[in-house]
């Protein structure tokens, strides 16, 4: 690890001002906010992240979890993943979010990891994490050895010929299905970014992953109030029974009325360059009977355009089975 200045931000403006000194908030940022550290310290040890200044934002009072006045769920940026997963409001109204978080990592990591940190976690692509390998995400234009190499775990949706990395988050998948909004504050003031727009597809610049600009600090995430009668579930498929990233996962939320699907929302994890949600696939379900055929239709639509790599073509079928099974589970 190269050396760096470690500073503890006294307040939010100070943190934002420090962050704004970096030329980018994306790969290669010279200033990084430190929350749980489970991504940042990991990547700094690997040399993938090399900030000159690390700004500790753990004592800025950003860890609240509560019901907002408008009924939204308010989740502070540094609320720990464990606290969020076990929070009574989340367990009661956002079951898939609780399940998604608990399906990720280990208790130790969830005790440290934060909401914002989880949203900003980086791909687990082995070439991205290996400094000796070329990687367009680390160094645009250097090449992508994953395309001809070990790509079993990687993305089949939203990829480009420059990058096939997948987003590894479980939490973000559930949040995406729940229409979460990311609240950020920057030097020029605050803004709200729907999670659906928060991540940027790789294209030719896979180093740019989010909408964040230098200095922009995620302060909290909000989830709209739960829909009446909605049931949700998170299903994660992986090789190992625990403590492993997803091959495929899905967060599914369904409202039934008169034996038909009144509304369905679902998102996929493990398969996309970003957490993946296809509105058209949800439309397919609206008004249809909650049966295997309908679920399969939705799954087909959701996976439409999937581009398999040499070792991960199976993810298409696996994702479909995952979706169908989650829907069956939640509607049975």
């Amino acid at each position: 690890m190269q050396t760096f200045d470690l500073v503890r931000a006294s307040d939010r403006p100070a943190a934002i001002a420090a962050g704004a000194e970096s030329a980018t908030a994306q790969q290669g940022a010279s200033v990084r906010f430190l929350a749980g550290g489970t991504t940042l310290i990991d990547l700094m040890k690997l040399g993938v992240e090399r900030p000159e200044r690390v700004v500790d934002i753990n004592r800025l009072g950003l860890d609240e979890i509560r019901k907002a006045e408008n009924g939204d769920l308010f989740v502070g940026a540094t609320a720990r993943n464990s606290d969020l997963a076990h929070h009574p409001l989340v367990r009661a109204d956002y079951a898939a979010l609780s399940q998604a978080i608990l399906a990720g990592a280990s208790t130790q990591l969830r005790n440290a990891a934060t909401t914002a940190g989880n949203l900003l976690q980086r791909t687990r692509c082995m070439y991205f994490r290996d400094l000796a390998s070329a990687c367009n995400k680390r160094k645009p234009g250097s090449g992508c050895p994953a395309i001809a190499g070990a790509n079993r775990m990687l993305a089949i949706l939203g990829t480009s010929n420059a990058c096939i990395a997948n987003n590894p988050s479980d939490m973000a998948v559930a949040m995406l299905a729940y229409d979460a909004v990311v609240h950020v504050q920057g030097v020029a003031g605050g803004r709200q970014i729907p999670l659906a727009d928060f991540y940027v597809l790789p294209g030719q610049r896979p180093d740019i992953e989010t909408m964040l600009a230098p200095g922009e600090l995620i302060t909290h995430v909000t989830l709209p109030p739960p829909k009446t009668g909605e049931r949700s579930v998170y299903l994660k498929l992986r090789d190992r029974a625990s403590y492993e990233f997803a091959l495929v996962s899905t967060a599914v939320a369904v409202t039934l009325a008169d034996g038909k699907i009144a509304n369905a929302r679902f998102a996929l994890g493990g398969v996309g360059a970003r957490p993946w949600r296809v509105r058209k696939a949800e439309d397919v379900l609206r008004g249809s009977a909650p049966d295997e055929r309908a679920f399969r239709n939705a799954a087909d639509t959701c996976l439409d355009g999937a581009r398999p790599q040499s070792h991960n073509g199976f993810k298409i079928e696996l994702a479909k089975r995952c979706i169908v099974h989650a829907f069956k589970q939640v509607t049975s």
Binding site: L6, G37, T38, S82, Q108, A112
Partner: peptide
């Protein structure tokens, strides 16, 4: 609370 001390900066 249990955590992995390898991913925690002592100074933080």
């Amino acid at each position: 609370r249990r955590m992995n001390s390898c991913l925690a900066l002592a100074a933080a």
